[in-house]
Design a protein around this nucleic acid. Structure first.
Length: 109
DNA sequence: AGTATGACGGCGT
DNA sequence: AACGCCGCCATAC
């Protein structure tokens, strides 16, 4: 298990409830830049991580629930988000930019 | 050891 | 504006 995964989990776990971020934002924050795919791959492995990782708060730059299919049930991700006050319609987060949580901005420095 | 793939993103056409 | 290709890092086969 690469430290990269731990870094991703650490950032994801810092995402406040009702907020979401993108794979690219996390990757960029970690210095991986274009390795946004790796973040997604880390999420896949997050299932094996000891601590709970709110992977449902991580979406692509479109605010689309691209990884919802990786949860226990395809609707779990959407329900979790809506449970936190994030409206999701047709796998699309409403007011994505409003709920967007940028690690570079929030965890700046 | 080399090739293909992946929950993405940016840039070129 | 829409579509397509390339890049980026790590894992899988």
């Amino acid at each position: 298990m690469s430290d990269f995964f731990e870094k991703v989990y650490e950032v994801v776990k810092l995402i406040p409830p009702g907020r979401v971020t993108s794979y690219g934002a996390i990757a960029k924050y970690l210095g991986a830049g274009g390795a946004a795919r790796m973040v997604g791959w880390a999420m896949n492995a997050a299932h094996s991580h000891a601590d709970y990782v709110p992977a449902h708060r991580v979406v692509n730059r479109n605010g689309l629930l691209t990884g919802k299919h990786h949860f226990d049930t395809p609707d779990a991700m959407q329900e979790l988000l809506e449970n936190e006050g994030v409206k999701v319609i047709n796998d699309q987060i409403i007011d994505f930019k409003t709920h967007f949580w940028d690690p570079m901005k929030e965890l700046q420095d």
